[in-house]
Nucleic acid binder design. Structure first.
Lengths: 234, 234
DNA sequence: ATATTTTATTTGTACTACATATTGATGAAA
DNA sequence: TTTCATCAATATGTAGTACAAATAAAATAT
């Protein structure tokens, strides 16, 4: 029973090196990464052809292609029939998206992601005040006004639209995409817990603060808006 | 010249459906994902064997394995020699880490990530005040005290340690790991721009606020601490 | 010089064969 | 009967060959 695979992982994972990879494809993937880094290839640079790589690594073309398939999924390489392989720019969030499924993620991580979104909502204030424009605020106000006198399902859509617009106003596209990915997880956790989600500060209140208030005012307002969610934390 | 691949992507990417995938492995990967979701497999559940899947999908075992290799990399499945495949819990950040290389990421995204870290630093205040303990604060203070009278390289390490401890105090392991991944990018951008990075509020000041100040005080303090970085934004 | 066809090359897919590990069955010993 | 050791069956892992398909580059025709 002293097999390393059966030892308690939670206590040791921080001190031990990552679990050794069994398959050749795993090793080849690592080696290819090292190779790309060492040679400091840039996006657009051509890479050796499969047969050369396979021979150099001492593996079959089959195994090599399993590793390449991974890099291709991540967007690190692109291939064409005769041109061969070229290094590409991976979409850093695209890879993230593939794995963000509430039904697979463990509860602890779900909670972490829930909190992460709260952190983003609170931390976005500075960016907002640096970059907000009158046009943005008008559009945001229109979204907020629409939600009056509508049913529940519309409110949810509008909630998403409002906060989405906030991220858009932050001028940070990565952040915006990131929060869109986080939303389903967030909703999943909220729905799971069945708690009231309406804070004392409404969307229209937040718009008003954006118009005339300071960054600090906005932070307080957002905090109050999200208060029901913060109440869930311990 | 009306080839779709040569059209301006920036303007259209939002309106157009994602670029079609050329290879079978791409398609099989998608189909497998759909299959797993549709059947609502849970971690630990056994999956059909390769030959069955390959036959059902109408592809060679080779192509199937290229797709499986991707899922295996993401940690979505695990395989053993005779037991076959079982669904597993992917490490949502592990996949992210593979792609976070400053040398590959384009400048715009680097900037986004730089800002993302600032957003996290600012947004973490609430979590900190919900979960901080006296023990935490003492440890944080020790870190902050160490940095007095030391050379530059030590200061950088200490900077990392200090902020790392803050994330640890947030009680959110995902967040902590996330910021550790973001740090190299952050440093890369900072070094690139060669700007002074010392704010008016020191680490020790922040510790003092944590001891006796309010959440709002801490936010202001952190903002001042990061002011040099915020000054870079436009 | 330009347009067209041909050729060569590289990736994509399929199939076969065998190695390797591991489960589960079978059988031996207590 | 229980326990241990041995063996066979089976699913994945790896290698190799063959060919299809696309396309860049060369050769040819206009």
């Amino acid at each position: 029973m002293n097999d390393i695979r059966f030892m308690d992982i939670n206590d040791l994972s921080k001190d031990l090196s990552p679990i050794i990879s069994n398959t050749m494809a795993d090793l080849v993937e690592v080696r290819l990464r090292e190779y790309l880094k060492k040679k400091s290839f840039k996006p657009g640079d051509a890479l050796p052809k499969e047969l050369e790589l396979a021979e150099a690594l001492g593996v079959s073309r089959n195994v090599l292609r399993e590793a390449l398939s991974r890099l291709r999924m991540l967007g690190m390489i692109e291939t064409k029939k005769k041109r061969g392989m070229v290094l590409a720019r991976p979409d850093i969030l695209g890879t993230f998206e593939r794995v963000l499924d509430p039904l697979i993620i463990d509860n602890s991580t779900l909670q972490d992601i829930f909190e992460l979104r709260l952190v983003l909502e609170m931390g976005i204030a500075e960016l907002l005040y640096i970059r907000k424009t009158d046009k943005d605020i008008r559009e945001l106000e229109n979204i907020a006004k629409k939600e009056i006198n509508h049913d529940h399902s519309f409110r949810i859509k509008n909630e998403i639209a409002f906060h989405g617009k906030l991220y858009e106003m932050s001028g940070n596209d990565t952040l915006k995409r990131f929060q869109i990915m986080l939303l389903p997880i967030f909703d999943y956790v909220v729905t799971l817990e069945q708690k009231p989600t309406r804070g004392l500060v409404s969307h229209l209140d937040l718009v008003e603060i954006l118009k005339t208030g300071t960054v600090e005012d906005f932070k307080k307002g957002m905090q109050a808006h999200l208060q029901p969610h913060f109440n869930r934390l311990t």
